[in-house]
Design a protein around this nucleic acid. Structure first.
Lengths: 201, 201, 201, 201
DNA sequence: TATGAATGAGTGTTCATTCAT
DNA sequence: TATGAATGAACACTCATTCAT
C-alpha cells in the first residue's frame, strides 16, 4: 500500500519537492541523483522533466520557497512587535528564529550548505535575501545600543555571532530529545541578552 | 621519455593534499573530480593513485590531519592554562579556537561540511574526536558554574551555542578586512563572558 | 535531436545478446569491453544500461538462457524415449547432445569457459544445472549396467568421459567441413556403445 | 616467516613463473593483473620487467615450457614403446597422457584456455605443436586399423574424441578423491580399447 | 503527463608499461 | 636488480538531459 506508482496530476510536483528536500538533506545536492529522486517519487526519471526544468532549478525552488516563507512569517512577527522596545524585539526575534529553524531544519540546512550549487544569478538572489534578513537583527542591535540598552564591540560581528549560534540549533536539536524547544529558546535568549547587557563590563 | 611534466617524489603527496584542500573547499568534495585535482597538481589522473588509495581516503586524510593538529595545539594551550581559574581558561579557549579557525578556515570548513562523505568508520572516528573537543569546553563551563562564576540553562546547549558562534567566524572573516583577528576575539570573548556572568539575571 | 543512429525499442536487447554472444565467444568475457559491445550494436555505451544491469549479468543471462533451452529440448527427447531401453536412450542422448552442441557451439563454449566470471550465486546455479544434466546420463548408464547391457569401471568417470568427448565436438566441428554432423554422431555413437558393451573384456 | 619481501637473484624468475601459473589458473590470464602477480611474488610491479618483457610473454613462456616438457616426456615413452604393437602403444599413450594431465593440470588447463591471449605468432607455434602431438595418436590409430586391430569411422574424429575425453580428466580429478589415478586410467583405457575393438559391430 | 530508450560527457579506478634513481 | 613514481589509455558504470511515443 506504499507510494502510488505512476503518480499523476498536480500532486506529482509536490511529491518531487518533498522527496527532493529529503534526499538533498540526507545526501547533499551533488550526491543526489535524479534517478534516486524519481525512484523515491515513484515515476521514471524522464517524467521529472514534466515538472522541473533542471536539477539546479529544483534546488533553487526549494531554497527560494523556504526564504519566502521565512520572510512571510518574519513579517508577521515584525508587525506584532514593531512598536516595542529593542529588548522585546530581540527576544521575539530569537524565539522566532529558533522556532523556525527547528521546524524547518532541512530547508534551513540546505539553504546554507547547498548555496554553492546554485547558478550565479540564483546564488546572488538568495545571498541578498539572507543579507536583508541579517540587517533586521543588526538594526535591532543598533537601536538598542543607541538607547544604552546593548553594548558590543561591533554590530555586525555580534549579529553574525548571534545568528550563527541560533542557527546552529538545527544541526543538533532533536524534537523529542532531552530539551524542549522552549528550554533552548530560554537558554539562548538569556545568554544573548545578558551578553549584550551594558551594566557589567 | 616519460615524466616530463609535473612534480616528482615525496613532494607530490604534499601537492595533492594542498590542491585537494583548495578544490574541496571551493567546490565541495562531491563536486571535485580527480581529473581537476590531477590537473591542478600537474600529473595524470592515474598517477594520483600512487599516493592515495581512494578519493574518500584523501578527504579522510585531510580531515584527520586537521583534527590531530587541532588537538596538538589545543594540548599546548591546556598545558599553559591548566592551573588557572575557569574564567581565564575560557578566555584562552576562545582566543585559541578563533585563531585556529581563522588560520585554518578551509580545513575547518571541510571538517564540518564534508563529514557525510566519509565512510562510516571514518565518520565515527572524526565525530568522536569532535565530541572529545567539545567536552573540554563543557568541562570548563561546569567547573565555572560550580564555583559560581558562570550561570547558564544547560551546559551542553551553552557550549554548542558558544562553539557554533566562534566557529562561524571562519565563514565570514576576511584576513585583511575591516576587523582584525584581535578585535573579533575581544568582541566574542566579551560577549561570551558577559553572557555567562551570574550577577545580572 | 537525439537518437539518430542505432536500433530502437525491444529489438535492442536482442541485438545486445547477439553481439555479446559473438564477442564473448571470440575474445572471452574479460577481454570483451562494453565499448566494443555498444559499437557492435550501434549504440552508445551508456545506452547498454537501459537493457542490462551489469556486464556480469549479461553473461549470466546468456548462459542461463542457453541452459534453459538445453533442458527444454532435452525434456522433449526424454519424453520421446522414456519408454525405450537404455541402449536406445543412450543413442538418443548422444545424437541430441552432439546436435545441440554443434548448433549452439558458441553458447556451449561460453557456458563452460566463462563460468569463473560469474558471481558466486550465479556460478552455483549454473553448475547445479549442469550436474543435473550429467545425472541423466549417469542414470542411463546405471540402468544399462543393471540390465547387463553396459559395463564400465565407474559410472561417473564413464559419464564424464563420454560427455567431455561429445562436448569437445563444438571446438573443432566446422559446419561445411569434411564430415557431416551425422557422420560425427555415427562415429561417436558407435565408439561409445562399443566401448560400453559387456561381451568383450 | 612467509614469502621473502624483495626477493633477489635468479630465484625471482622462478617465483614469477610459479605465481603466474597459479594466478592465471585461478583467475584467467586477462583477469590476472601484474600488480597481483608482483604482490604474490613479493616485489614491486616495476621489478617484474627485469624478468619478463611483457605480460603476454610470460603466458607464452609458461605454455611453451609446458609443451616442451610434454614432448620431452612423450619422447621417452615413445622410445620405450616404439617396437610394440599399436594396442600396447595406445595403452601407453593413454597412461602417459592421463598421468601428465593429472600432475600438470594447471599448465594443461592454461595451455588450452588461454591460447587466444597469445600473439598470432605464438598462437600458431603452440597450435602447431598441439597438432603434432595429436598426429602421434592418429598414427597409432591408423596403424592399428591397417592391422585390423582397431575400427572407427574417422581417425581424426576418433582421436579428437579420445584426446578430449582423456584431457577432461584434469578438470574434475581430485588427487585424494574417491578414485586413484590408476583407476581412472584403467576405466578409460578399457573404454577406449573396447570402443575401438573391431569384433563387435 | 508518463514512459522508455537514447545521448555524450563524465565518474572513480585499474591497467600494462617505462624509467631515473 | 629493485624501487617508486610516472604515463596515457582503458575500464565498467553513472550522470543529467532529450524526445518520440
Amino acid at each position: 500500500m506504499a507510494r502510488t506508482i505512476g503518480s499523476h496530476g498536480p500532486k506529482t510536483m509536490e511529491a518531487i519537492r518533498k522527496a527532493g528536500l529529503k534526499l538533498i538533506y540526507e545526501h547533499g545536492f551533488e550526491a543526489m541523483s535524479l534517478r534516486q529522486l524519481a525512484s523515491e517519487v515513484g515515476i521514471q526519471v524522464g517524467s521529472l522533466y514534466n515538472h522541473i526544468t533542471t536539477k539546479e532549478d529544483l534546488l533553487y525552488d526549494l531554497i527560494k520557497v523556504h526564504m519566502d516563507e521565512l520572510f512571510r512569517q518574519f513579517a508577521e512577527i515584525r508587525a506584532e512587535t514593531d512598536h516595542l522596545e529593542p529588548v522585546e524585539r530581540l527576544k521575539a526575534f530569537i524565539a522566532f528564529h529558533v522556532t523556525y529553524h527547528i521546524l524547518r531544519k532541512r530547508e534551513v540546512f540546505i539553504g546554507y550548505s547547498e548555496l554553492r550549487s546554485l547558478e550565479p544569478n540564483h546564488y546572488e538572489e538568495i545571498v541578498a535575501l539572507r543579507r536583508q534578513y541579517e540587517r533586521h537583527l543588526i538594526q535591532i542591535l543598533r537601536e538598542g545600543e543607541s538607547l544604552g540598552l546593548f553594548r558590543f564591540g561591533d554590530a555586525s560581528v555580534a549579529a553574525y555571532g548571534i545568528l550563527t549560534m541560533l542557527t546552529g540549533v538545527c544541526t543538533w536539536f532533536r524534537p523529542h530529545g532531552r530539551l524542549t524547544k522552549e528550554q533552548v529558546i530560554a537558554t539562548y535568549s538569556d545568554m544573548v541578552l545578558t551578553g549584550l547587557a551594558p551594566q557589567n563590563r
